[in-house]
């Protein structure tokens, strides 16, 4: 009995400790984002009183956060849309049609999921320079599409292949052609899987750093992750201001997470749960 209670208590202690470990850094930055650097220097772990909400406005105005935001949103939304459409079409084709080379294409795409992207980094850079796409959001978006396309096709193919063939036959008998079937049957029926890949791609690309830092040099075109790094450089000692910037960049994701946590978790773990 005693050992059971002890075990229970130990378990609870672990849970509390880990929750603090996982959550503390974020909450700490949250408090710092509302305090001035002077206040922080006096006591790094104090509660914000008074809370300096004005810092958020200052950070937003003072730096190019709105530019970074717009750039990130443009490039990420654009490439996620393209990835979804192109990926779904390819996945449908691989899942539903029999043709010579079907499995070969699948195998090649599947293998390229494992390739570390920095292998192609230099050549991608050279290629974009040659096509005058270096330092443009178009170029970055194109690279983003190629980064996430294989995984997207892989995930969607698995789902689409499980749609019963009878549905397709029924649609054919009902008079629908290949493309109508794709748009009016596959996309709606595959929506849960598509939503999952959209979330996964969105988060991964929203946080992408390596290609963003290599392929963009114009400050006007920077995406959020690189922007924050810049911001950090500009406000080297101004911890309070950096904390505010960090919070600004994190809030959208957290807000979305607050509403769609289950779907988000599902999307993020889609590649691993089998």
């Amino acid at each position: 009995m005693v050992s059971r209670a002890l075990g229970r208590g130990g378990l609870m202690a672990i849970l509390v400790a880990y929750t603090a470990f996982a959550g503390f850094p974020f909450l700490w930055v949250g408090t710092m984002s509302l305090r001035t650097t002077t206040e922080i220097a006096y006591n790094h772990y104090g509660w914000p009183s008074p809370a300096h909400w004005a810092k958020f406005r200052a950070a937003w105005i003072d730096s190019a956060f709105n530019t970074y935001f717009t750039n990130s949103a443009t490039v990420v939304i654009g490439s996620v849309a393209v990835i979804t459409l192109v990926g779904a079409a390819a996945a449908h084709c691989l899942a539903r049609y029999r043709f010579r080379g079907n499995r070969l294409v699948y195998f090649i795409l599947f293998s390229s999921i494992i390739l570390p992207p920095q292998i192609v980094l230099i050549a991608v850079y050279q290629t974009l320079v040659e096509y005058n796409l270096y330092d443009t959001l178009w170029g970055l978006g194109l690279v983003y599409v190629s980064l996430q396309l294989p995984l997207t096709i892989y995930l969607l193919e698995g789902f689409f292949a499980r749609i019963p063939q009878d549905l397709f036959d029924a649609a054919k008998v009902d008079g629908y052609g290949d493309f109508e079937i794709f748009f009016r049957l596959v996309l709606p029926v595959g929506m849960p899987a598509i939503a999952t890949t959209v979330i996964l791609n969105f988060i991964l690309l929203w946080n992408e750093f390596l290609f963003a830092v290599v392929l963009i040099s114009d400050d006007e075109l920077r995406t959020l992750p690189v922007g924050i790094q810049r911001f950090m450089g500009d406000h080297f000692q101004d911890i309070g201001m950096i904390a505010t910037g960090v919070m600004i960049s994190v809030l959208p994701v957290i807000v979305v997470y607050a509403f769609f946590s289950e779907k988000l978790i599902q999307g993020m773990t889609a590649g691993a749960v089998k």
Binding site: D166, L167, D169, A170, V189
Partner: peptide, 14 residues
């Protein structure tokens, strides 16, 4: 111009 009824019904779920 034919219609078919499937064993699995094949109703469009959406």
């Amino acid at each position: 111009d034919i219609a078919m009824v499937f064993q699995s019904y094949a109703l469009y779920p959406h």
